[in-house]
Design a protein around this nucleic acid. Structure first.
Lengths: 161, 161
DNA sequence: GTTGAAAGCTGTTGAAT
DNA sequence: ATTCAACAGCTTTCAAC
């Protein structure tokens, strides 16, 4: 969204802290960022309006949501037109089992991150929702045994070093 | 974490709303969930202590963090021992470019979700951080052209239907 | 752009149901 | 376990630098 965000040290500290805890009180955030609470409040609001901060989300345990089995489904669709890609993208994301969709270049066309109740539900999903679609030429699924997500992404911009 | 979370309608409404906006005021959350603000407050706290809510996070635009290029890197490591898997998992997650790590079954062993400045940086990462490692037998990378994440994951438990 | 103090609002606490 | 009302604490506003 933003081309030259030009984040300064304060912004980067705010973003790092807020990625770890979106509900961090302004007072604490201020002491971490090294600024006054009112300044932080203003900074956060500007980061939102600039499109740097895109949202505040709550992470939920997948097991608690009846999604103990996770899998990555690599999918090829044909013909590879813009319309078909967009259509499949939104269709896939609308499926209850699909948690995220990635459009890839080379090899497979899509990567679907799915979360389901058990292996039987995964099989049902593959057979009923993917095999049945005419545009789906091929797919292959891998069970996810574990995953790790970085708590806070650092700014890799040169100027920030 | 929790085996029988047994989420009721109120819990599910709270989780859905909070996944979309972790900073939703208790008053609004209460009206959405159909309960008193104090009840919501208690519910949220219990969901946290039960391990259903695992965190509150802020989403940041990848371009703003100097990560305009995203890629999925499928990696095979050998020998496939528990120790080596755990080691590579934590090593990979410690790399600045790596945003998430998935341990897969079948085909490839790992899937690395990376975010870098440009294609040159991706190449550097592959050559310097992966090729150079002795345990890495093979890898293949796909540029991510786009992605979509579900705003709120619904509960797929039978009893919740 | 930043700060400090006042104002307004929000979240939580406790007694009662 | 939930609710209402009062409190305490916070965030935000605004004038000043």
């Amino acid at each position: 969204m933003s081309e030259t965000p030009n984040l300064d040290r304060t912004d980067r500290r705010i973003l790092e802290a807020l990625q770890r805890d979106a509900r961090l009180p302004m007072r604490e955030l201020a002491s971490i960022a090294g600024a006054a609470p009112s300044t932080c409040s203003e900074r956060v609001r500007r980061l939102e309006s600039r499109g740097v901060i895109t949202g505040f989300h709550t992470a939920v345990d997948l097991g608690a949501l009846g999604r103990s089995v996770e899998a990555m489904v690599f999918t090829q669709v044909r013909p590879l037109s813009r319309d078909l890609i967009d259509q499949f993208h939104s269709d896939a994301l609308a499926m209850p089992e699909v948690m995220a969709v990635f459009v890839l270049a080379g090899g497979d066309d899509f990567l679907l991150h799915v979360g389901v109740r058990d292996v039987a539900a995964l099989h049902s999903f593959l057979v009923d929702n993917l095999s049945s679609r005419r545009e789906v030429v091929q797919f292959r699924s891998s069970i996810v045994y574990g995953h790790g997500r970085k708590e806070a992404l650092e700014d890799l911009t040169e100027s920030s070093r």
